[in-house]
Amino acid sequence: MGSKITVHFVRPDGSVEAVEAETGESVMQAAVFNDVEGIEAECGGSCMCATCHVYFDDAVSSLLPEAEEEETVMLEDAAAEVRPTSRLSCQIKLTAEMDGIKVQIPDRQY
């Protein structure tokens, strides 16, 4: 069991949904288990579907562990624009340092 932190999901229209998440779970899990719209996660975190695509802001992006090849290849299939700050949220584990981060939801996942 991890400790509680807050993640702010920013919707395409700019509105923000703050959810309670736990360190150790993925950003994707924080979204799905809090019923956040716009992150589909069809493959349940297997890095197989590119429907959990998100954007991080520059500052956070540089703090995250680098994407493995599997994620980079899968990201090519993402439906929305792929940016330097794009990641598959199922591959990003939440840590205490990430308390309060903003995560941008793209305009579409398919």
């Binding site: 799905v32 288990f33 069809e42 493959c43 349940g44 975190g45 297997s46 197989m48 579907c49 398919y110």
Partner: peptide, 18 residues
């Protein structure tokens, strides 16, 4: 379905659910 992991062979199920 909170514990599910769909695979590429589930493409029709994915489309149907949409």
């Amino acid at each position: 379905r909170t514990r599910e992991h769909l695979a590429s062979s589930d493409a029709a199920i994915v489309r149907y659910r949409r």
